[in-house]
Simulated assay, not measured.
Amino acid sequence: MIVLLPPSETKRHGGDGPALDLDSLSSPALSDARRDLVDDLVKLAADPPACRTALGLSKSQDAEIERNAALCTSPTLPAIGRYTGVLYDALDVETLRGAAATRAQHRLAVVSALFGLIRADDRIPAYRLSAGSKLPGRPTLAAFWKPTLEPALAEIADQELVVDLRSGSYAALGKVPGAVTVDVVAEHSDGRRSTVSHFNKAHKGRLARALAGSRAEPDDAAAVAAVARRAGMRVERRDSHLTVVVPA
């Protein structure tokens, strides 16, 4: 089983690893696309006004531009330790121990706007590029990534069950055939249901933690739902789609 996560806008600064080595990352079929985007971001960082426009940044966020300028020289961290924010706080992978930590390293993967599909232990620098960014002279990132990312995702889906926890903009970078998908809804006291927005990430993070560390080896949506229920989550299933139901 692979649990596919979105990245986060916020990322830990610094790192304890060597500079970015694109050839060392998993899914080597994506190397050329990664190299093109890294080169674009480094060049774009030399023009702060254009960079702010492309990445949707304000002047107060120029530190993000400096990160991109240093993409090829700054230190790296494992991808699962680079991303921060609500989902990753709930996942709290650093507190997993022993066999659960080992399983998490194998099962967790991220789809990044810059690197495409990366595994938990792929070492990456801090950067700024979102799925909705529009780089000068390029199509949308969804159009850029689909031709190479979808085959890479399909190859994984041929071998293992994929639980896709990505948000819409990152799911658009490449579809996963046969994936288990998940949404989160809040149930009110009168039975009404509404979409969970901000805390959607927290609940998906908790689900990711349950799946990452579980001794079970789910091979379909029903088995995924069973793991979630054992972790105390209320889950409904319709074919390969799961709905996590939380109190409003």
Rank of each mutant, 00 (worst) to 15 (best):
A179Y: 01
P125M: 04
V180R: 00
V3W: 12
I124R: 05
R35A: 11
Q159P: 01
L211P: 05
V244S: 01
M233K: 01
N68C: 14
P6S: 14
A152C: 13
L25C: 03
T195W: 13
S189P: 02
L242D: 05
A221D: 07
R230L: 14
T140F: 05
V185M: 02
L141I: 10
L129V: 13
S189H: 07
D40K: 05
D39M: 02
H241P: 09
D16Q: 08
M233A: 07
V38P: 03
K59I: 06
L114M: 11
G213L: 00
G56S: 07
L129M: 15
V176P: 00
P151K: 15
H106E: 15
D158N: 07
L117H: 11
P147K: 12
P247V: 13
A69C: 08
S167L: 07
D89I: 12
F115C: 03
G178E: 03
E155R: 15
E236F: 02
S26E: 09
A222I: 07
L161W: 09
A142D: 10
D40V: 05
G17Q: 01
A79S: 11
V227D: 01
I156E: 11
R119W: 06
F115D: 04
D92A: 14
K201A: 11
P136K: 10
G174R: 05
R237V: 03
L211E: 02
L37W: 08
S194K: 15
S27A: 14
R234A: 08
T76A: 09
L22G: 06
F199H: 14
D158I: 01
V111Y: 03
A131H: 11
P147C: 13
E217C: 05
D219Y: 09
L44Q: 01
D220A: 00
A69Q: 13
R128W: 12
P28C: 09
A208V: 09
S24P: 05
S24L: 03
A45E: 06
A104I: 11
A131N: 13
M1L: 14
A45T: 01
S197Y: 08
R138S: 00
V184W: 06
A33Q: 13
A226Y: 04
Y170K: 08
E217S: 04
D183M: 00
G174H: 04
L117G: 06
R35G: 11
G174D: 04
D121R: 13
D158K: 06
A228P: 11
